[in-house]
Amino acid sequence: MDWPTTIATTVAALLTLAVFSFLYKDNPFYKFAEHLMVGVSAGYWVIILWYTVVIPKMWQPLEAGKWYYIIPIILGILMWARLNRKWQWVSRYPLAFYIGVSTGVAIPLEMKAKVIEQLNGSVDLVTTMYATQASGMTVVNNILILIGIIAALIYFFFSKAHTGATGSIAKFGIGVLMVGFGASFGFTVMARISLLIERLQFLLFEWLKWG
């Protein structure tokens, strides 16, 4: 390994150890690593945004004589008026424009992808069972999912007291939600352990060259 790489790897390893030291208790090494990361990230983002937005989307179009770019640029500058108490009302104009456009773009597509398609999917569980003459575990799975969806939805239905049959279904709904949370928790544990494993792989095999 060449010297620059060795130095970079050692710095990364020492910073990793500094972060790990927080597991014992808060200390200046951890604080240093934390502040360094926040500072470097902020600096990196500024440079990235400068070269991917300000230069190509503001400066270069104006240089090329596309003067209509001045309209979004002015709207963008007006956003900064929020920093001044006297002039902050001005920022409402670009915000109104921004929210209007975002809402117009987002609502139909989000509604379609996250509500309509999901509803279709739930109905399809039954229709495809008939259409494809599904058998065995597919039928069991589909029925279980359908019952689970209905039970979980009934748990969130507060217009009727959760007693009697409604209460029993709602209770089953809680069970379904718990299974969902359990799966999420399991995946989360795996994700967190993955981070630990990767850091130890780095410390052992890339830094210490142990094995």
């Binding site: 398609e117 999917g121 999912i145 969902g180 999420s184 995946f187 989360t188 795996m190 994700a191 993955s194």
Partner: peptide, 12 residues
């Protein structure tokens, strides 16, 4: 892993 379970409905 943290995100995975959120996206299984879209797979279904």
């Amino acid at each position: 892993g943290v995100m995975a379970t959120d996206y299984y409905p879209y797979w279904q």
